[in-house]
Amino acid sequence: MNLIPWRTKQSDGGQTLETGLSRLRGEMDDLFERFLRYPVDLAMPAAFRALGPRLDLAESDNEVIVKVELPGIDPKDVEINVVGNVLTLRGEKKQDRQERGRDFHFVERQYGSFHRSVPLPTTVDSDKVSAEYKGGVLTITLPKHPGAKPKRIPVRTQ
């Protein structure tokens, strides 16, 4: 079965039924996989997960690390803000020049702007936040505020 290409970009209407169903199945499998491996993921409010790019959030004694999958974005088009305990990501993925004026067989990759706010588990030192973009993955390192670091209190005996 051949696909008939179309010129105007629409939602995923170009896939065959089989492809669409197998992708849905794949996504359901992923969902179960994530639930079994990282149950904390689904403990978050649904609305919080549904919007914007998907991310990883990890916390160590000294810092909070956020990783976001953002393939094919210009780092200049990403805006990262930390206000209080909330990290906000905002940006836009623009369509490449070489992609214009062609017929489409498959269109699955997403374009356009995104916006996402993430509540952080602790207070971070917003002056020392750093971000790195490599291989389509954005890594944001947020050092914890000195007051928020765990302090070990020794118990003395007399």
Binding site: R102, F104, V107, R109
Partner: peptide, 21 residues
């Protein structure tokens, strides 16, 4: 996720593979 595009000269395939070297 892929895009497959075509013009007179070629097919062009774009695939999102974040994190791959």
């Amino acid at each position: 996720n892929v895009d497959i595009l075509e013009n007179r000269e070629e097919l062009l395939l774009l695939a999102d593979v974040p994190g791959a070297r």
